[in-house]
Design a protein around this nucleic acid. Structure first.
Lengths: 201, 201, 201, 201
DNA sequence: ACTTAAACGAGACGGTACGTCCCGTCTTTGC
DNA sequence: GCAAAGACGGGACGTACCGTCTCGTTTAAGT
């Protein structure tokens, strides 16, 4: 029996889930990743620490849940060309990333890769999902006849999203210029792929 | 006179600087960024904690100094072509980065951007130095007649080094395939630049 | 209403109070006052340092509480004569003091008078209590007709207990001879008082 | 040869001895025993720490030397009676003690008895000297015929000086009343001795 | 309505690391 | 060839968090 887990006792209060998430986000914005403490989140949310640890095993999981909560990524609608598809993919990622402060992303990434289980979960969701999106748009291009064969998706992944991450996380570049970067990147990747795997005439 | 600051008292023992740096690096390699403690560094280096805090205000500054100690980046020798120069720049960065464990890079970046003074210092040295290297190779290309005008260096910076960081820090990709990525990236950027700012015929 | 202060949250574990006190006393006996460390107390008591600092603001307060825990001093039973009463008072004090090592007494007194709040607390409890005992036996003597009027209690206090403290703390005298000293002191004080304030015939 | 110790090199600067002692006394008065640091003394005296440690093995010795520097105690001139002699002894001690703050005396005593070598030295000088003074006045009384035999000097020592120490160190009593206490104590001890060892008629 | 079982706010708990301070020693340069 | 200035190893201090664990109270579902 797959254990329907008939609930006994007081059920979890779903308001608390929201309170935790929004307190976490507020404190991240106010004080930064490094100075976020679980006690502060509990206090700000008006709840006890136990309510947090009943939901999340570690502080990192809490932050992870509060920050990447709704990042659902779907392959973009078929734009009719590889170039258009790649640009759409880039744009979505860029938009999502630019809502977060760089120090939060760095802190989260550091903690993610410092904890192997969380790291695996991150790779298993976000990275895989991005990869799937890229696979999809590449397959479309092959089908469309733009490319002779699907190139290595991992390399394309890095070429396409790397510049955006670097701009936001390392260069801490001006966000107004992000659209420029997105356009240039998408164009460069599209051209390179076309040159490397030209359609068999 | 700009204060020659003639030293009085016992001078700092430069052997201790080395001992701190190498103990830090050893412990980072052995136990990882998250488990590095100042006491452990002092103990391993055979010194007192005070000697560390006399040199560095925080643990983060110590790690910063110990890890980025000798990263001197010079523009690569002129290879004769923009493509060759870009590839050389990429290779050097890729080589430097791959000597460090990903968790150290993440931890360091997180701490860097969690402390504004350190973050500014990082940008003011490494990023500026990388930017200078890129400026140099772009200027060479213009001089050579490969490009009509030097393109925006910041964008080139992101396009060129972003994929490598992404590969190592986010994808945690196979390091054996890094040379492939470097080649592809350099080629893509060179082609894009040539297409965007072609030599005035 | 004088604030009944209904407790919320997890209450303090009173076993820990005992564990701290007995670990402190054990370590004082084993290693002496100067070598007592808070970490050692915590470790010996099997608790965290935070549990100590939640109860006591400083190491000194902890030692104060641990060493003077149960020193409840009551006026001795009426022996029928001033001399007998004074001797009883002396004996009790002498016995209590001789259970402690001189270095602990010195250390404690030094810390007491190095921290004004602790010093005031010490005076407000022990000294006051001793004074009350002395007041009581003097009042008895007046009632009994042994003395015409109660003499200055502060002077009597010093005359009666001073020699014992001096013997134990300054002379570090042989403890076997303490009973002798107690007898002589009590006799001297009783005689002096009788001579100074004789019963009005 | 009894080693005339012909001095080699630069002789010690005796001004420094004074500077150390007065800086120590000033800081003791300003900040108290517990907060006295060697660095502060050196800085205040305008000298290096080494100059201090060249003269004293420990901080305690330095304070000891600075505070008890000139306490030379001689038996008082013969007053003609035991009572008068005892009172004179008391007065001298009381005067010397009341120049020092109680926290300094306590701190010093604590450190003295925490360090056995210094403790022995203290006993070997001050206590012995006091004892000699008491022995002397008791011998005079015997010679004079006031006492049949010299009583136990240790007990007399405690009886005579204990109340003064207690008043100043434990009760932190009013110093204006010290003369009263001295008179009462001397009278009590004189009477008791006379009663215990009356002159053989 | 009453029992039961879990969730709740509050906050104490063991543990670990931090950064500071001081001691007594050692090592320079300058007088 | 000593002195000041101050760096050094060592070690304790008191603080701050983490993730866990009681308390006494509250809330739903099942009797």
């Amino acid at each position: 029996m797959p254990e329907p887990k008939q609930p006994v006792g007081r059920p979890r209060d779903s308001q608390i889930d929201h309170a935790i998430a929004s307190a976490t986000r507020a404190l991240l914005a106010e004080r930064g990743y490094a100075k976020l403490t679980v006690d502060a989140v509990a206090s700000r949310a008006g709840i006890g620490k136990a309510a947090i640890y009943r939901r999340f095993a570690t502080k990192q999981e809490m932050i992870f849940a509060a920050t990447v909560h709704d990042m659902e990524e779907q392959p973009p609608p078929d734009s009719g060309s590889l170039h258009g598809d790649l640009e759409a993919v880039c744009e979505v990622i860029a938009e999502q990333l630019s809502t977060a402060a760089p120090d939060v992303l760095h802190g989260l990434l550091a903690d993610l890769h410092g904890d192997s289980s969380l790291g695996a979960r991150f790779t298993g969701t976000f990275i895989e999902r991005e990869r799937f999106v890229i696979d999809t748009v590449l397959a479309r291009a092959v089908e469309r006849g733009e490319l002779a064969a699907a190139p290595d998706a991992a390399i394309v992944h890095a070429l396409l999203l790397g510049p955006i991450f670097y701009w936001l996380l390392i260069l801490i570049g001006d966000r107004d210029r992000l659209p420029d970067l997105v356009r240039t990147t998408a164009a460069a990747v599209a051209d390179t792929l076309a040159a490397t795997a030209p359609p068999s005439r």
